[in-house]
Amino acid sequence: MFRSFLRFTLVLATAFLLLATAAHAETHTTNLYWAPQNATVGGEKIDVILNSIFVLTTVVFILTQAFLIYYLVKYRRREGVKAQYSHGNNKLEVVWTLLPTIIFIALVIWSNRTWHELLQSPIPPDALEVQVVAYQFGWDFLYPGADGKLGASDVRLITPDNKFGQDKSDPAGKDDFTSAEFVIPVNKVVHILLRSRDVIHSFYVPQFRLYQDAIPGRTISWVRFQTIRTGNFELACSQLCGAGHYNMKAKIRVVSQEEYDKWFAGKAQAHAAAAAASATESKDQNLVQASEHK
C-alpha cells in the first residue's frame, strides 16, 4: 500500500510539471504566477508584498509538506517498531504559537501601512478627478472641463435624466463632459469618484492592482492611482450584478500627456458645441443626452 502511495506522489509530480509547462507555453505573461504586468505605482508596492507573502508561504509550504512526507516515509509501520508514547511537548507548543504570531504581526503592520499609503494618504491637488458611474451593465465617465474641476454632484440627484447626479446650478459643472472610455494621461495621479446607479458593481483593473466596489447611494472617494506605462486595458466589473455582469466592461487607454491633451481638446470642443445647441432649445435635460450621443 505504501508503494502505491509513493508511486502516486511521483505520478502526481510529473503530471503537474507537464501540465504546467504545457499551459505556460500558451501564455504570454511575465512572471511566475502569470499575473498581468503591473501598470501603477501602487501596484508595485502591492507586488512587493505579494512576492514576500509568496516567499513566506512557499517556505512554510515546503517545510510543512516536506516534514509530512519525511515523517510518513520514516515512521511508516514496520514490524517490531513501536510508536513512541508521547502526549506532546509544551515548549514546542509555545514556540509554534509564538513564531507564526510574530510573523503575522510583522506582516499585518507592513500591510496596513501600505494600505494607508495607497488609499488613505492625502490626494495631491493636481490629481485628475474623474467621476465613474457604474450601471447594469456598463460604465460612464465624467471628466472635468477646461477649469480642471468637476462640478458639484450628489448621488441623491442621480435620475435617468441626470446620470451623474450633477448639481445643475454649479457653474463649475457646465463644462464637464462625458466619455464612454476611460482615457488617462500616463504618470498622472487619477482620483476617481465611484458611484453606481442600481446595484453593487466593482471597479477592477488587474493591471492596476485595484479593486473597489461601487455602492448605490454612496460615493466612494478614496480610490486613486498613478499609472507608470501607457497601454490599453480593460475595466471589468468584478462584482456579480446580474445577467450581463460577465460582459460589463469599458476600455481604458493610458496615453501620453500630448495624446491626452489632444483627446481632451476634441472632447471639450464637442461638448461646448452640444451645449450651445441645446441652449438654443433651452432644454436643460438634453445636455446630458447630447453629450452622450456624441
Partner: peptide, 11 residues
C-alpha cells in the same frame, strides 16, 4: 494569508 493582507486583497 494572501487575502488577509489588505493591499494584496486589493488585487
Amino acid at each position: 494569508i494572501f487575502m488577509a493582507s489588505t493591499p494584496v486583497d486589493l488585487f
